[in-house]
């Protein structure tokens, strides 16, 4: 799969949703497009799946141009969209069977495949029910199973685990890994760095329609100026503001950057990106926290992550 200088500008938009995007995905690879909402990930998937007409550039799937032969392309790919688009008038099993029939899969093959996928995705028990009242996780499993019914060469997953509980998310991740083992090429978009790091062989980081970096998650993290990080949880009493504490921590020697990543009542989680060893910073940080009158309730040493890569590239947090 290949994308060359892809541009998409929607009518009436002032900027390009996708701005000269170029990347290639090898067969049997899990490729992740990581970026915040509105980065152009879904638009890119839209072009590759023939639902969005590109303004300029080229997109090829198995060497077939998506704008030249959209029907051929559609037979090669499976799509799991971000939003539930299951057929609510049909049962779970019928959703799978009709999808395969639309793709011209012979009856005996589709019946056999449907039973196998229902089993694999733990949907057999509810196969005759309509998907109206299903949970987000069940819907997601159904949509993946449906996309696999015509045995696609490339599977597109748009935000596959958004809104899923942790168990459902792990289930989906396991299935995605199994598909790679089976030789399916997978392109997924996500705004979740953990998901990109856990699943993708290579990650493209996108922001405002542009590709900022592309490599394996490990290589992206290795390329960072930041070495390690320290996550600090503090309780702030009375009038003391979190801004003062952030200022204080940010000026410590060895701290490259400092940001608040969470807050619950008076308990704040602060993340420090460090230039050196995290262990050496524990005492200075604890002292600084005590000096401003805050109570230290937790401290955790962390490795740099894709989140840090994104921050270094854009100056903003992914969230």
């Amino acid at each position: 799969m290949e994308v060359r200088d892809l541009v998409k500008r929607y009518p009436k938009a002032r900027t390009d949703a996708v701005d000269r995007l170029t990347f290639a995905v090898a067969g049997g690879e899990i490729f992740g497009l990581l970026g915040p909402n509105g980065a152009g990930k879904s638009t890119t998937i839209g072009v590759l799946t023939t639902r969005v007409r590109p303004t300029a550039g080229q997109a090829l799937i198995a060497n077939v141009d998506v704008t030249v032969a959209p029907r051929t392309v559609r037979s090669l790919l499976g799509v799991v969209p971000q939003r539930n688009n299951l057929d609510r008038s049909l049962s779970v099993r019928q959703n799978l069977l009709f999808h395969a029939a639309y793709h011209g899969v012979p009856k005996a093959v589709r019946t056999r495949r449907a039973e196998a996928l229902l089993e694999q995705f733990s949907l057999t028990d509810r196969a005759n029910e309509k998907p109206d009242l299903f949970s987000g996780g069940q819907n997601q499993r159904m949509m993946i199973a449906r996309a696999l019914m015509h045995d696609p060469r490339v599977l597109f997953l748009d935000e596959p685990s958004t809104g899923l509980d942790p168990a459902a998310r792990l289930f989906v991740w396991d299935r995605i890994r199994e598909l790679r083992e089976a030789g399916v090429t997978i392109v997924l978009t996500t705004h979740d760095m953990d998901e990109a790091a856990a699943l993708a062989d290579r990650v493209g980081i996108v922001d405002s329609g542009r590709l900022l970096a592309l490599d394996t998650p490990a290589a992206l993290v290795r390329g960072l100026a930041t070495g390690s990080s320290l996550q600090v949880t503090v309780e702030l009493a009375g009038e003391l503001g979190v801004a003062g504490l952030l200022d204080r921590l940010g000026t410590l020697a060895g701290v490259q950057r400092c940001e608040q990543v969470g807050a619950e009542a008076a308990v704040y989680t602060i993340r420090l990106c460090l230039t050196g060893e995290a262990a050496a910073m524990i005492t200075p940080v604890a002292t600084a926290v005590a000096e401003v009158g805050a109570r230290l309730t937790g401290m955790e040493i962390g490795e740099a992550s894709l989140e840090d890569v994104f921050i270094e590239l854009t100056g903003r947090s992914l969230r």
């Binding site: 057929d87 639309y102 011209g104």
Partner: peptide, 8 residues
Amino acid sequence: EDRLLAPL
């Protein structure tokens, strides 16, 4: 959408 993504 599922029908729009069929090879038709």
